[in-house]
């Protein structure tokens, strides 16, 4: 029985399932964690929101995923008029597809045979959450935020994206009120695929610009 293991009270080393034990997160709360709890409890006590509404909002945030953006990309590949509308006004085009993208302004930038776009937020972690969900941890790292503007090709190479000199790299720094999504290049060999099948090819990284969409 696993609980008879003599290490049970120490939780050091490797568990019986072969993974290292993870430290319990029972250290004291940080200043901002306490602030969040205090503000939330005051809002609930004052009748401004209910605990259920807070939970519902967290569920809404967690339910967004790159699959939303992938559907938009697949339609843009298959429908030239929608593609034109997306490049003209990505907020309106996303709403047209039923995505609640809130008040934020979304700009779609299109990869071509000559241009590769990549998105970063050097100042913080601005990200098109309404279409892609929560950003990956690396997107918020100091390393990604600083190196993507100073040596984007080296960063892209580490993501496995090797671009020839004939392709211009355009870095988009989300410094203020806009959010960006990359419309990746549609891979060769996908002619005749349905939008549903195309959407399954579209990765999160391809919509940040740190990946390319591969043919199946």
């Amino acid at each position: 029985m696993p609980h008879d293991h003599p290490d049970h009270f120490h939780h050091h080393g490797i568990s019986s399932s072969g993974h290292p034990y993870r430290a319990d997160n029972d250290e004291p709360l940080t200043y901002w964690q306490r602030m969040e709890i205090a503000v939330r409890e005051l809002l609930i006590e004052g009748g401004h929101v209910t605990a259920a509404e807070v939970a519902q909002q967290i569920n809404t945030m967690d339910s967004r995923s790159p699959a939303n953006g992938a559907v938009v990309v697949a339609r843009a590949w298959a429908d030239p008029e929608f593609r034109a509308r997306l490049l003209q006004d990505a907020s309106a085009a996303s709403r047209e597809m039923g995505f609640d993208i809130g008040p934020l302004k979304l700009i779609a930038v299109e990869n071509t045979a000559k241009v590769h776009n990549v998105i970063v937020c050097t100042l913080c972690s601005c990200y098109p959450r309404n279409l892609l969900g929560l950003p990956p941890d690396w997107y918020k790292s100091r390393e990604y935020r600083s190196r993507t503007v100073s040596e984007p090709r080296a960063v892209l190479r580490e993501f496995g994206v090797e671009l020839p000199d004939s392709v211009t790299v355009r870095v988009h720094d989300s410094t203020a009120d806009m959010r960006y999504i990359v419309l990746p290049l549609r891979p060769n060999g996908t002619e005749g695929m349905s939008q549903t099948a195309l959407a399954e090819l579209v990765t999160r990284d391809s919509m940040i610009g740190t990946g390319l969409v591969q043919a199946p």
Binding site: P152, R153, T168, V169, V171, D173, T175
Partner: peptide, 19 residues
Amino acid sequence: EIWGDAAECPTDTLDAEIF
């Protein structure tokens, strides 16, 4: 323009929103 001679590829670009 941003990095001068240290630029990784001088003709690549960076777009930012500026007030």
